[in-house]
Amino acid sequence: MSTQGLQILCVDDEPNILRALTRFLKMSGFEVSTAGSGQEALILFQTRHFDAVISDMGMPGMSGAELLSEVRRHWPKTSRFLLTGFSDLAAQDPTLDDAQLCGFIHKPWDNEALLACLHAALSVRD
């Protein structure tokens, strides 16, 4: 899959995680934007199209599940991924049915696995 020009938004309240994600995704050829909260993410969604969004689950204010539900509602073409450190918690959250995720990414993630996950979702979509 050519990653050229594909836009990804990463959302996490921890700057270290955003930096780590950005670094890897940029070097893999994606155009990366970042947001520190659900609210910030929604504002960015108004400015451009994103091919995919990766969001942390536990954030102050809007949770990852809530954000991804909103994204699905307004921008259903954007592939949605949840980044989680709680292994089974995320699977039990009812809001997630609403979000219709394309995949879970467990922290810490393996770079190659993350790329494969994105590849799978983004190539099927077209």
Binding site: N16, I17, R19, A20, R23, F24, M27, K107, P108, N111
Partner: peptide
């Protein structure tokens, strides 16, 4: 030894 950024950081530094 888990850290979000090691050892991938080293291969990124090489890159």
């Amino acid at each position: 030894t888990q850290s979000l950024t090691w050892p991938p950081t080293f291969s990124t530094l090489k890159k």
